[in-house]
Amino acid sequence: MKKSLFLGTLTAAGLAAGMSAAATLDDVKARGTLNCGVTTGLVGFAAPNANGRWEGFDVAVCRAVAAAVLGDENAIEFVPTTGKTRFTALASGEIDMLARNTTWTFSRDVDLGFEFAGINYYDGQGFMVPKELGVTSAKELNGATVCIQTGTTTELNLADWFRKNNMEYEPVPIETNAEAQQQYLARACDVYTTDSSGLAATRATFEDPSAHVILPEIISKEPLGPLVRHGDNQWGDIVRWTLNALIAAEEFGITSANVEELASEPTDSPEINRMLGTEGNLGEMLGLDKDWAVRAIAAGGNYGEIFARHIGESTPVGLARGLNAQWTEGGLLYAPPFR
């Protein structure tokens, strides 16, 4: 932590010496790689696979941005960050963007000086308990020992929720997900709480996932999304619209399989044409070329494909789309128009 702060200060000093803020796009292009901050490892969201290649739902956003900007989805330097180090890493310029299931909150957006580029997962904090405990509602958790992954908004939500419901609990703060698992499985805590997507991802790695239940109560709103530094609006726009392109692609039925074909000649739909660059000059406005969205979608597919591949119901994580369905299907995903 101290080291990264020191390095961060050095980096910041170096950056400031060379140029004023902004121009992340030029930096990334000159460097040839995108520095993307991810978690230290959460199955389904960001974790290296057996071959050491980073994969996951958050990683896919990084890959789409790298594909859009650099034309190569592998031109990424992944920087694993903990709950503690992530903001310093981003603020100091060590990373260009942070895609690390980070909750969009007022103070992070306004006070810490970051720019949330959108929401790629609508989450909420939940509780996981062993089935044999016989607990069916979080309201029955009075006096329980609760494992929390420290350095997140979960601590505050938990304190607020138990206070609101006039219940007692004993917090056991844990630094990483792996340690929390160890304590939870040894029953050193009765309950494990974090974002319910994280619970599902953690449960997927257990020997017997069916012996654990995720309680129905969701005690907070946790809109997770990628973020960038304040002050470089062009870079913020690129990340924001890359994410929007992935979401819109699902809505329009553009997949990794048909994107090349749809982009080869103008289609009947003007919005698809504008997005894929066969009409208008949206790419130019972003400071990229006209094929930026084609590459972003080709990298990992549209939002639905990414979801299904990494955290969907057919994966061990097994999350339903729920709130994360398209607005046309009763969810909250709603990309602004491409025009």
């Binding site: 200060t9 603020a91 000086g113 607020d160 917090p171």
Partner: peptide, 28 residues
């Protein structure tokens, strides 16, 4: 000076006012 300047550029002005705000978390 350099650190202060860079922090100011990043929009992070050093301040200890947060110490008086409610912590919001529990300690076991």
């Amino acid at each position: 000076n350099n650190t202060a300047q860079n922090l100011a550029d990043l929009g992070m002005r050093p301040s200890f006012g947060f110490l008086m705000e409610p912590a919001g978390y529990d300690i076991n």
